[in-house]
C-alpha cells in the first residue's frame, strides 16, 4: 500500500511538471508576438483603441480567474458542488470577456490596415484563441467533476484547469498592458 502512495504522488508530480512544461513552451509563441509588437509599434498606442472596453475585457478575465481559484479551493476542502458552481460562473465571465473582444473586432475601432492594427488583431486573436481553449477546458472539467466525483484526494483535473486559466490570465494581462498602456 505504501508503494502505491509513493507512486501516486510521483505520478502527480509528473503531471504537474508536464503541465507546467507545456505552459512554459506555450509562452514561447507569445514571446514571439510580443517581440513583433515591440518591433513594429515600440511604445505607440493608437488613440483609436478603446481604453474602456479593453479594461472591461481584462477585468472580466481577472474576475473569472478569481472565481476559478475559489472553485479549486472548494474542492481542496471536498466541496464538490461549489467547485462546479464556481467553474461555471468563471466560464460565464470568461465568455463575457470574449464577447467584449468580439464586439471590438466587429466594430473595428482599430483599423486593421495600420501597424498598430496588425499587431492589435494578431495579439488579441492569439490571446483570444488561448482563452477559448481555457474556457473549453473549464466547461469540460465542470461537467467531468460532477460525473467522476472529484474529491479532496483527487482533484488534479481542477488543478490543471487552473494552471491553464492562470496562463490565460497572464497572457490577457500582458497583452492588455502592451496594447493599451505601453
Amino acid at each position: 500500500m505504501q508503494i502505491d502512495t509513493i507512486d501516486k504522488s510521483r505520478e502527480l508530480r509528473a503531471y504537474r511538471f508536464g503541465m507546467l512544461m507545456f505552459l512554459v513552451t506555450q509562452a514561447v509563441p507569445f514571446t514571439v508576438i510580443y517581440a513583433v509588437e515591440y518591433l513594429f509599434d515600440e511604445f505607440y498606442i493608437s488613440p483609436k483603441a478603446n481604453q474602456w472596453l479593453g479594461t472591461v475585457e481584462v477585468l472580466l478575465v481577472l474576475a473569472s480567474w478569481w472565481l476559478g481559484r475559489q472553485g479549486l479551493a472548494a474542492i481542496r476542502q471536498n466541496r464538490l458542488l461549489d467547485l462546479v458552481t464556481k467553474f461555471r460562473q468563471s466560464l460565464l465571465l470568461g465568455t463575457a470577456s470574449l464577447v467584449v473582444l468580439g464586439y471590438q473586432w466587429g466594430t473595428r475601432f482599430v483599423p486593421p490596415s495600420t501597424r498598430y492594427g496588425e499587431v492589435y488583431y494578431t495579439l488579441t486573436g492569439v490571446t483570444g484563441f488561448y482563452t477559448l481553449v481555457s474556457l473549453f477546458v473549464l466547461l469540460a472539467i465542470s461537467i467531468r467533476a460532477a460525473k467522476v466525483k472529484l474529491s479532496s484526494d483527487n482533484y488534479w483535473d481542477a488543478e490543471a484547469t487552473m494552471y491553464l486559466w492562470t496562463f490565460g490570465l497572464l497572457t490577457n494581462v500582458i497583452s492588455y498592458v502592451l496594447l493599451y498602456w505601453i
Binding site: 513552451t25 514561447v28 514571439v32 492569439v126
Partner: peptide, 13 residues
Amino acid sequence: LIWLPEIQMTFIL
C-alpha cells in the same frame, strides 16, 4: 519544446 512553438507562431504571422 522551445523552438517548435516558436516556428508555429512565426508561420501564423
